[in-house]
Each structure stands twice: as C-alpha cells, then as structure tokens.
Write a protein that binds this DNA or RNA. Structure first.
Lengths: 338, 338
DNA sequence: TCCGGCCATGAAAACGTTATCATTTGCTGG
DNA sequence: CCAGCAAATGATAACGTTTTCATGGCCGGA
C-alpha cells in the first residue's frame, strides 16, 4: 500500500523559482491575503512551469481540516445502494468534499472492524454508513466514538443522526392497495433485515393486521434474485397466493419470471408489486407496479445531516420523505373477484 | 469543506500517558522495531484509554506514501459502471488501498478540469478513469502529466495503460450470430462514443461488411432508455428491421418494451440482442440474448495495472478478456425465413 | 576483569504546508 | 516635514508523524 517516494515539486521550489517567500506562494494559492500583481504573476507562472500541486497531506496536517468523507456500504451495485451513493457524492462534491468508498463485505464483527480500520486509517471529516442491511448495522457498531457519523436509512436505535426512507409507509400503501383490489391477503418476499426490523416487512404486516387480513408467513428472505426465482417456481401452484409484495424490484422481476415459467400469468392470476422503482421496471412486460423511493435524495439528505454535524456539532435527528406507490401493469384484482 | 479543529489525542499524549518517548509509541503502532513487552503494554493501554487514532495526514506527509486511489467516472449507477467500480474497490481494498470516487458530470472541458482539480486536491497514489464515454475521455485529458493514471476501457489513443473489454469482438460475435440465423442485416442502437470510435459499433459494422451485408444507418445513440423506447415505437412498422443489436441491456429492455407496445413480437417478428449481461436480463420475458462482459474483472484488472505502475513504474500496456455471447430468448430466425 | 557489539530507547530532524507575528515600504494627514 | 498607519512581505513556529542518528546498558568471549 505504498507509492514510491518520487515526490513532486514543493512550495519551496515554486517560491525559489518565482523569487518570493514561501508564505507568499501560499497566499497566492489560497487567495486569502492580497498579493501584488507582479509577484502573483511570477508565482502563477512558476506553478504552471513546475506543474506544482499542493500537498494535501501537509495542508490537512496544519489546518486540521479534513475534506473527505467515508462511505461504508455492503454493496455498490444494487440499484438502491448505487443511487444513494451517487446522491451522497453529488451533495458532497457540491460542498467541496470528496467521497471515499469502502465496501463492508460481511457482517462478521472481526472482518468488519478490520475494514473499518482500513477506511479510518485515512483522515476523514466524517462517515456516512448505508444501513440497509446487517453489514451496515455492523459497520455502525464498529465505528469508534467521537467521529461524526450519520446513517442513511438508519433507525433510532443506532444512536446516530439518520436520514430515513419511510419504507414502512410505502409497504403499507402497497399492501392496502392490493387489499383494496380485492385480494384476501398479500404475501411477502422479504429483503434481509438490517436490525431487528425491516420497515418494508413491518409495514406489510401492519397493513394486513389493520385490515383484519391474515398475515401469512414470509415466503423467503434474501438479496439474491435467483432465490426469488426458485421461490416463484415452488409456490406457483398455490391458488391461495394471489398477490405478492417483493422486497425490491430485482426480486420482483425474478419472481415474475418464475411465475411465467410455471405458467402463472401476471397480473391476471397473481399480482406482483416491487419496491424501489428500478429504472427498468416501467419497461418490463408487464410493467412493474412498485413503491417509488428517492434514493438519490436519501443520499443528499444523509450528507446534509453530516454537514450539519460538522458545522454546528449537532444535526437534526431525522429527516424523511414519503415513498409513493406507482401503479403499472403487474397488479390487478384477484382472479376470482366477484 | 472544513472540519472544526477539534483535534483528537496525538501521539504525544499517548507517549506522555505511557511514560515513553514518541518514537517508541510509533514503533509499537507499526511493529517495525521490537519494543520491550512492558513498554508495549503501557503504550497499548494508553492508546485504548485515549481512543488514539494515528493522524493519516501527518503519516502521509512524512512517509510520502499515499494509499488512496481516485476513480473518475461519469456515472456510478449504470450497471457496467457500478460493477467496474466495485471490482476496482475490491482489488484496491485487498491491496490496502482506499478508493475515492468523483463523478464527472459533463464533458465540458472547464467543468471537467474543476472537478478533476477537486479530486486531486487530495493526495492520491494514482487514478483510474472509467473511459466508457466522452466524459471519461475528457477526464483523461484533464489529468496532469506525471501522475500514475490508467484507463478502464480505454484505447491506445489515450496514451495511458488501459484495461480493455473487447466489445468489438463481442459485437462481431452477436452480429454474426444474427446473420447466421438468416437475418439479411442487423440494425444497431448505439451507446455514445467515448472517442472517435465505439468498439461495439465498430464490431457491428465490421461483421456486416465482412459478411457482405448492407450496413444500415445507426438507429439512435444515447444512454437514455426512454429514447430507445421511443425509437422502437418509431421503427415498429418497418418490416425490413428484423434484428437489432443494442448498445447495452438497459436500452434493449426499453426497446423491447416499445416493440411490445407497437404490437411487434420478440423474437418472432424481430430479434433483440443486448450488451453487458445485466443481472436482470435472464429474468425478463423474453429472456434477453446478450453479450456478456465481465465488468468486475475489468475493474480488478484496471487496478492491477495501476498497482504495477506504482510498484515498478511501468505497466503492461493492455490486458483483455473476451466477451461471450449468451443466447436466450429474445433472438431467433427472421419471420420470413424460408 | 575488561572490551566489542548488539539491543532497546530517546533526541532531533524532516516532511510541506498554513498561521502568527514582525518588519519594511509607501502613503496620508496634520 | 514628520508621525502614524495600512498594506505587502518575509521569518519563524506550529501541525503529528516517521526516520535517522546517537546513547546507554547488557551480554558474551577472552
């Protein structure tokens, strides 16, 4: 983990070439204090001639200011994750910060700690952790106290400021919508729990309970679309399953494919609703009914929370936007609706 | 872009608390030189008690070693991009490096330069540029000389080591496959050019030429699936179009949807082939025939190139893996095949 | 018993920058 | 014409590490 010490030109070289003192070069670079036009020109010329670039380490050392923030996530390719990260990066860049990404591959405490240590071996102003899953929760626990930390999609139990996505409300809306269509109950294909509860699963359960509908066991839990596909094949012959709420759109797509292979038609025989509003969902056939979540906004809000923490030492505890149901073609009334 | 100067404990505090000299603390931390067990214990205790964490800036300053690499990309959410980045991150992390992500939102030179400058205002060991598109090419041009740089998916013209994906070969294979099925020619929905040529488009054209088939004009060029969708609606009534090679899978999905809305059946009336092997492609109906590309491997190879550059000062100029055609359901013989 | 050499340790220098403070210069106002 | 002040500049001191380099103690061999 090293770079050979082929150091580039330093501010001293620039000062010498321009025939000025070192602090003057610094002042030209930072524009903090006025410098006579003549000297400034000489300095600028020298900088360009030497291809000089200030050493960020030295600068950070003396100012004590950090301008990189670490993002901890268990995955960077899944739609929700990638979009949240893009939102964080965008907000951070606009504020003059740089984003460092570290993937937490597992929730095994020792491995998590090692990875977190690697990430924190670099000077960071603060940390944003994507708390969508157990690995995110583990990362949160492994972070040392005293570091500014916020969670994207966290909960009150984490003890850090968190920006949330009210996926419980989204799941309730989707479930209520399906019940309203005439389905006796709604089944659920879950996404792994990030703590003791998953908002989506909780919302689904609550909507069923409030409507007095039966709460069937969760069909399966996992991130892998292939499992959703297999699950669909397994439950295809169960006529009592007429509506399924999937933990995310990727799972919904694979689930629908399994149903298709088993000869079950969507939405005529069974309704499928996804979660997240994956950009491809609207182009599927049937187009996917889903719960839209604004992950990019979640990312931006997470960073805003961290920014507040850095500036004022405190941050509003939470901030939230409501997901919205997007009704497309994969959902409809149950087959034997009278 | 600041962090309030609430500095934490320094190595001096640790040394004082442990009753040893500063270098001894350093030696305990780095394990470079043996330290007596008794002192080591005292130091370790003091570190834990104070919650001491070495200042990376000071460390980087004195050693001159950098362990962060910058990744420049125009997007972090598109499948190919996100997966490549994940590959880079994985390889970097295993080698003890951290990756910093900066999004280059445009290919407008001035904006690119400003963003690159922001990224390089932090000490980096090297840079990996995702050169999938014009913005990537612009970033490559904006980078100062003398910095270790490699391109993922670059070309010889960039003047830097590059790991490639032989998408030209992939496009040729796909085109030849469609011609072999009996299609008189193959149409093409392109992805934006990253330089003067796009491998995919070039391969498509070459395969047609070599087979003596007519080379029709490119249907459209862009990243936006919605445009692909509209294009499909526009060309739906053209019976001469029986096979379309799309620049990526996202475009292929939207294109197929447009065909579906226009009443054209895939693959019976028209064949559609994508590019990249998006994980959802196999679950679509019809399942998408596509050209598989290993982006994660591309990312890992890119980092390996950079690692070589950092270690030895030189890197092999290129490295490549061949894409493979994955035949699924969205392609077949043309309708009026005799 | 004495001496050469090794081992653990500490003192001090160095890394490249910004911040603080003192100095010089030039100008204004009485 | 001089006191006084502001503006521009430079000298010097941090910042928190690691890396020499020097020192002192201890051990083994003669």
């Amino acid at each position: 983990m090293a770079r050979s010490p082929a150091r580039g030109p330093s501010i001293i070289d620039v000062a010498r070439l321009a025939g000025v003192s070192v602090p003057t070069v610094s002042r030209v670079i930072n524009g903090s204090v006025p410098v006579s036009a003549e000297r400034r020109d000489r300095v600028v010329t020298a900088i360009q001639e030497l291809g000089y670039r200030p050493n960020g380490a030295a600068r950070a050392l003396v100012t004590g200011r950090q301008s990189v923030i670490a993002v901890l996530a268990s995955n960077t390719t899944r739609y929700g994750y990638a979009t949240t990260i893009q939102g964080i990066e965008e907000a951070a860049r606009l504020a003059g910060f740089i984003v460092m990404i570290t993937v937490i591959e597992t929730d095994e405490p020792e491995a998590v700690r090692a990875t977190v240590d690697l990430a924190l071996s670099h000077p960071v102003a603060g940390v944003v952790v994507l708390r969508f899953d157990p690995a995110g929760a583990a990362a949160l626990r492994a972070l040392p106290a005293g570091l500014p930390v916020v969670a994207a999609a966290g909960g009150k139990g984490d003890g850090v400021p968190h920006a949330v996505l009210d996926d419980m409300a989204g799941a309730m809306a989707a479930t209520e919508y399906l019940l309203g269509l005439g389905h006796r109950t709604v089944h659920h294909l879950a996404v792994p729990a990030s703590g003791r509860r998953v908002g989506r699963t909780t919302g689904w359960r609550r909507a069923l309970t409030e409507a007095g509908a039966e709460v069937p066991p969760v069909l399966d839990t996992g991130w892998d679309p292939e499992r959703a596909h297999r699950t669909a094949l397994q439950i295809a012959d169960r006529a009592d399953i007429t509506a399924v709420l999937c933990g995310n759109d990727e799972l919904a797509v694979a689930f629908m494919r399994g149903l298709h292979e088993a000869g079950r038609r969507v939405p005529d025989e069974i309704s499928v609703v996804g979660f997240d509003d994956h950009p491809l969902g609207r182009y599927l056939t049937p187009a996917l009914t889903t719960v839209r979540q604004d992950f990019a906004d979640l990312g931006r809000r997470s960073f805003a929370l961290l920014g507040g923490l850095l500036d004022t030492g405190e941050a509003e505890k939470t901030s939230s936007t409501a997901p919205s149901l997007v009704i497309r073609e994969s959902s409809g009334p149950p087959p034997q609706a009278h």
